[in-house]
Nucleic acid binder design. Structure first.
Lengths: 199, 199
DNA sequence: CCTATCTTGGAATGATCGTTCCAAGATAGG
DNA sequence: CCTATCTTGGAACGATCATTCCAAGATAGG
């Protein structure tokens, strides 16, 4: 009997995610969300609840749409060291050029504002952190199997280190860091963990 | 002839810096600043100008009071690798325990919110970045002189990498990361850049 | 076509935002 | 002590914040 929604919530959430990513969630007012989505305040609140819940939903959507594909690609890439190198090269490229240049990473940006924030948000951040570290670790194990990983290293610690490196790339890129500087930094780390390819 | 200020602007700025550091500059209202400093709005605006200028001043004060001593200590520490290790151990300890636990770093936090922000802020961030990298590089050169730096490394790139690691420690600590996890990560990076001590 | 039920547009809410303003208070040179 | 000049407290400003509310509109089972 009842009326049905006149819009697609999935599309709307994508728009909100993009807006929060570009402008920063806390700095974005509901009025901007209304304008970006074309929805009315009624529909917005009826569908997503208040701003805090909307923010969590947008962050979850970011993980799903942006992070997940990249993490899965990294975890599934069995090449070893080249997989890690490719991950970072694509990361730097995405952060410094193209459609989302200088937007940083929504997950990374949220870290800075999550101090004292709702535990729900922090759990999402931790889950993402674990997922990225696990993907790194998988790539590292592949590298080790190929004899490209320097002996005596703790893969878990190395995975954590590389994950931290990725966060910093995201962070610095939003403040305008140069792509080649960031690349030189990550290359130095990856090189230090690996052995030169045999020929 | 005129009246003089009834307060010490230096003390007030320290209080504002602490407040912005703990709560986040953007999330902090002028009302909170008034309460924390005990000043009236009149004195606040007459002394520091609007919020944007206050934010820049607080960030500058943070560099002076918090970052500078640590950076100078790192640059002046001629021990080489132990200097770098000590820097990171103190960093993790400061971020995860004590008075400022889970506050993160005001400079690092500002990175996430500086997207599209005033160029003045971004320049401060860049100056800090250069200073930290230079201090790292000085310590690396000392390590190289002692034969503890792995041969064939580009000190500039390694300094950049270590600087990025420090940012990530700051970032993750604010979201609640465990000290031992962060330490394991940075240890892996430092170890990878260095050679075991001779005995 | 009727009507119960949900959605929608948009006005209205009170709170808080950063900022301005002015009268009253404090200061120190004359 | 007088007065020019700055500082101070605090009211007031318009803008924007997130949220609520309701009448009007749309829908689909009966």
């Amino acid at each position: 009997m009842p009326d049905v929604k006149h819009f697609d919530p999935e599309v709307a959430l994508d728009q909100v995610m993009t807006l929060f990513w570009r402008r920063g969630a806390e700095a974005t007012g509901i009025a901007e969300v209304v304008q970006a989505t074309g929805l009315s305040r009624s529909s917005l609140y009826a569908t997503f609840g208040g701003k805090e819940r909307l923010q969590a939903a947008a962050l979850g959507r970011y993980l799903e749409r942006q992070s997940r594909p990249v993490l899965d690609a990294l975890a599934a890439d069995t090449r070893g060291v080249p997989a890690i190198t490719a991950f970072f090269e694509r990361l730097v490229a995405a952060r410094c050029t193209g459609e989302h240049a200088r937007w940083g990473c929504l997950v990374t940006n949220t870290h800075a504002t999550a101090g004292g924030g709702p535990p729900e948000i922090r759990e999402i951040l931790d889950r993402h952190h674990d997922a990225l570290r696990a993907a790194m670790r998988a790539a590292l194990e592949a590298a080790r199997a190929k004899g490209r990983l320097r002996p005596g290293l703790d893969p878990e610690a190395v995975a954590e280190a590389l994950t931290l490196q990725a966060y910093a790339v995201n962070l610095r890129s939003r403040a305008g860091a140069e792509a080649d500087v960031l690349l030189a930094g990550v290359r130095a780390v990856v090189d230090a963990f690996t052995l030169a390819e045999e020929r």
